[in-house]
Design a protein around this nucleic acid. Structure first.
Length: 896
RNA sequence: GCCCGGGUGGCGAAAUUGGUAGACGCAAGAGACUUAAAAUCUCUCGACCUUUGGGUCGUGCCGGUUCGAUUCCGGCCCCGGGCACCA
């Protein structure tokens, strides 16, 4: 089976044979895959399918290291599955809508579309240069009308099913630029361009009812066995189903105005209003000493009428960002409204406060506060001198100082009127029933997850296919009129905020129902809408429907790879969307992704100098030299150009803002794609963060050169390569047997690690093999082991460093195309050992290593261990109490 | 603030998941080859002690369970990710 090998004249192209020249090998291999259409796939009912997907990139300009890592992991899995014989689909496309295109357009005065398409073109050449095995026939970009048309269609379908609605929601408002800001554009509470203090403002927005699917999305997390526990836990917490009690507090008009100022408060009268709150701790109800409402709450708004101080406070509450992190970390402030809530059980009046940490859009915009048993309420009560009551006591009867700190554990109720001496658990039900009987409240299931707000007040996105007609109200755009095209040939300059807002050419339209004048919705979709179903569209990218029958062959995705930062939002929206597709009859299963690998971030050192204005100027690691002591600890870092020190800013995710990115392209140009792929796979396991290190890349390159040299070391004797000495099978000597055992043990390890996707140790196993092969010489037996071993190494490395593996495999005559070769399995006879090493411990400490025959039983192993001189020395005068023998591993002698 | 991870030599890591801590690689040191350098090859490489046989300590910190703990349990410290309009 070695015709090609025999025909090679090793001296004919000496340079190429002697030196590893990745550029040429890689372009040859890529040309081979291209002309053979190696990665083009179609549905084939006779073969097991495998759909391997990596999260598609945002076309930001060029690939970054995170992309390289993500796509290498995906490609390794895809190629491995292919070599196992499956019909593998691995597509690629572009998450093309988004804010950066608008920013770039503003800066470069070019249309976002042109910028995006240019980036796609360049990044595609980079992906090809890395040798990823994609079926490019299925490429898609989410900004293409034939893609977003179907998303618009689905939205109108959801509207007709009542799964879509419009309501007011809070946004970040820049009062100077008169525009909505993304959270990213709010820096320290100010607009990024104007520097103005950001305000919270409510505007009408479209929502999709993900809460209708909350139970299903939560319950089926249990079935996602191929997902990391970390992600499953995060999603469970995100959905955050809780069981609690919703109850009403009657509102009593003004009584005491303590601290509420004086002016104008007299206008408020007794009312029969009430406010509704939700709590997961009804057992603490008797400890309520105040109630807090959002600044926008009708009660607060009403109380503020004519009250300048309260009006000013409510105004202050509107300032700052809308993100949860902002709201939770701001200084908690409040102001009494001068009205009281009536405790539903005790009838006691407790003050109602407006508070800056209560948001109108979350829950009911009002919370009951129990300072004794909630940390935040406790801090607030201390600040405003509100009483702190203890109503829950530890079960063990111990006492706690409730004035010093909140007691948040469950326990036994005291000072709770009719509920005294009940446990928290019993009180939950008792209080709920008490309220229910009196029509004041009921047990409720609540979710932390909120409906998905999909409106964005931006240009570069999918137009929301809705029309506002004065006669007919809101009317969805009918399928025949889809897609609602986003105009791409628009003018963009520094002052452009949004070319489709206040643009009659876009917004003026005719009502599909009455034919009268109407206005288009000018908001666009959240880009998560596009990324929530792209995996399905890849199966039938040219379908004249959202999806066709092909989706049923390929879905679900068997393996999905992407960043851990998508653990909740993207992955939850995609799970939700898949169910929407299912309930529209487009897919047949419940979950989109069977197995998930969340890859860690690529991180690197950061360096900066403080500027005069207090800001930081970040220097790229390539511009900095680090001085180290003899142990390699960094002493200081200096800028190469001026030799002056820079501050070492610690290790952070590679990013533009910290300027600590390493451009993959320069590494590919210098070392080739295989080295970059190998390095990223070897340095860290896929799910951990990867710390960048230039010398490590050099090491990966060195390893590939060693393999290249090994190929050169292999002779051409056809008998040796066939495992024969003349016509007789080779009898291996001890040294050769040892080499074979090392190789097959490493193979066993590599296969185990391929299966659990720990690719760094797959590479380690390959290195171990190569080290063993380097010890072999020219003897016939050595050559046979070398030939066998290198064949194994090439196939193990095939998915990781595909170009060199492809080249050597065919060049050395192992076969035609390595992708079509059989995956290697360990040879049992090579693994067999006559004697086994046991570690002998005395009282848990290693004291000796002994050899025992492989067939020795426990008693025999024990005897051999006890016979050891060092073991006897440590037993000394003590009595042997117990001997533990772990087969094939260890003996522990317990002596006292 | 809340939720989720992580912490092992000078560095990245490994330990088939309760059984030899540090595989594999980087950096460093020594040697071989070379006129020389680079490249390549070989060896050493956790800390401390040592009579050179070996011994003691060591996986962020404190405690516990166990014949035996990087691994399990309780408490703490530090670092990172996500927090709904970055993608």
């Amino acid at each position: 089976m070695l015709p090609r090998l025999l025909s090679i004249d090793k001296n004919s192209d000496l340079n190429m044979q002697k030196n590893y020249a990745p550029a040429r090998i890689e372009s040859d291999a890529q040309a081979h895959w291209e002309t053979q259409k190696t990665f083009k796939v179609t549905e084939d009912a006779t073969r097991e399918k495998f759909y391997c997907l990596s999260m598609f990139p945002y076309p930001s300009g060029k690939l970054h290291m995170g992309h390289v890592r993500n796509y290498t992991i995906g490609d390794v899995i895809a190629r491995y599955q292919r070599m196992l014989g499956k019909n593998v689909l691995q597509p690629m496309g572009w998450d093309a809508f988004g804010l950066p295109a608008e920013n770039a357009a503003r800066k470069n005065q070019a249309a976002p579309a042109a910028w995006t398409y240019a980036n796609i073109e360049y990044m595609k050449t980079q992906l090809k240069r890395l040798g990823f095995g994609y079926d490019w026939n299925r490429e898609l970009a989410t900004c293409q009308p034939d893609y977003y048309k179907w998303e618009q269609w689905l939205f109108t379908e959801l509207y007709s099913k009542g799964l879509v609605y419009r309501k007011n929601a809070v946004v970040n408002w820049d009062p100077v630029d008169q525009t909505v800001l993304a959270n990213e554009q709010v820096i320290d509470g100010r607009g990024w361009r104007s520097g103005a203090l950001v305000e919270r403002r409510e505007i009408p927005q479209w929502f999709v009812k993900i809460t209708d699917y909350a139970d299903e999305l939560l319950d089926e997390i249990d079935n996602l066995e191929g997902w990391p526990d970390q992600v499953r836990t995060m999603q469970r917490n995100w959905i955050g189903r809780s069981f609690g009690v919703q109850m009403d507090f009657a509102v009593q008009g003004r009584t005491n105005a303590a601290g509420a100022g004086s002016a104008g408060a007299a206008g408020i009268q007794d009312s029969d209003e009430s406010l509704t709150i939700y709590t997961t701790r009804p057992d603490t109800l008797m400890g309520v000493t105040y109630v807090a409402v959002a600044g926008e709450h009708p009660l607060a708004v009403k109380a503020a009428q004519g009250n300048a101080e309260l009006t000013a406070f409510i105004e202050e509450c509107r300032q700052g960002g809308t993100s949860e992190a902002d709201l939770e970390t701001i200084e908690k402030k409040g102001m009494p409204l001068g009205i009281n809530a009536i405790h539903p059980v005790s009838g006691e009046a407790v003050p109602i406060y407006a508070a800056n940490f209560v948001l109108m859009s979350y829950g009911t915009g009002a919370v009951m506060a129990v300072p004794g048993h909630d940390e935040r309420d406790h801090a607030f009560a201390r600040k405003y001198g509100i009483p702190i009551k203890q109503v829950v006591h530890p079960v063990d009867g111990s006492t706690v100082d409730i004035q010093a700190a909140a007691y948040i554990e469950k326990g036994v109720l005291k000072d709770s009127g009719p509920f005294n001496d009940l446990t928290s658990e019993a009180a939950f039900d008792a209080i709920a029933e008490w309220l229910q009987e009196r029509g004041k409240g009921e047990k409720t299931k609540n979710y932390r997850i909120r409906d998905w707000g999909v409106s964005r007040q931006r240009y570069w996105g999918t137009p929301i296919p809705m029309i506002h007609c004065e006669q007919c109200g809101t009317v969805p755009v009918p399928l025949a009129d889809l897609p609602v095209l986003l105009p791409e040939d628009i003018v963009y300059d520094e002052d452009t905020i949004n070319p489709i807002k206040e643009n009659p050419a876009f917004s003026d339209c005719v009502c599909p129902d009455c034919g009268g004048k109407a206005q288009r919705e000018t908001d666009t979709f959240d880009t998560f809408m596009e990324s929530s179903w792209y995996y399905a569209r890849y199966t039938c990218p040219d379908a004249d429907a959202m999806l066709d029958e092909r989706a049923k062959y390929w879905l679900p995705v068997d393996h999905y790879v992407g960043g851990i930062e998508h653990a909740v939002l993207h992955l939850l929206y995609a799970r939700f969307y898949h169910r929407l597709l299912r309930d529209t009859g487009l897919v047949e299963n419940n979950e989109p992704f069977t197995r998930l690998l969340t890859q860690g971030m690529v991180v690197a050192d950061t360096y900066y100098r403080e500027q005069a204005d207090g800001s930081k100027h970040w220097y790229n690691p390539a511009e900095v030299e680090v001085e180290r002591d003899e142990k390699g600890r960094p002493l200081q870092a200096v800028l190469s150009t001026d030799g002056q020190p820079v501050i070492i800013g610690g290790i952070e995710k590679m990013s533009k803002s910290k300027n600590n990115g390493i451009d993959p392209q320069s590494l590919i140009d210098r070392y080739g794609a295989d080295t970059v792929r190998l390095y990223t796979m070897f340095t860290s396991p896929p799910d951990q963060s990867l710390e960048w290190n230039d010398e490590g890349v050099e090491g990966a390159y060195r390893f590939l050169k060693r393999i290249w040299a090994l190929a050169d070391k292999m002779g051409t004797d056809p008998d040796a390569l066939a495992g024969k000495s003349g016509s007789v099978p080779i009898i291996f000597d001890e040294r050769q047997k040892t080499a074979r055992r090392e190789i097959h043990e490493a193979l066993q390890k590599a296969n185990y690690d391929y299966d659990r996707q720990q690719f760094n140790t797959v590479v380690s196993a390959c290195m171990t093999m190569v080290n063993a092969l380097y010890k072999l010489g020219d003897a016939v037996g050595d050559q046979a082991v070398l030939h066998e071993g290198l064949g194994i190494v090439l196939r193990l490395l095939g998915p990781i460093a595909p170009h060199i593996s492809h080249h050597l495999w065919s060049d050395l005559g192992y076969g035609d195309d390595i992708l079509n070769s059989a995956w290697p399995v360990p040879d049992e006879t090579a693994l067999k050992q006559e004697s086994i090493q046991y570690v002998v411990q005395v009282n848990g400490k290693v004291r000796a290593k002994v050899q025992a025959p492989a067939e020795a039983d426990k008693a025999a192993v024990e005897a051999i261990a006890l016979a050891n001189e060092n073991v006897q020395r440590f037993i000394g005068e003590a009595q042997v109490r117990k001997v533990i023998v772990v087969p094939n591993k260890l003996v522990n002698i317990v002596a006292k």
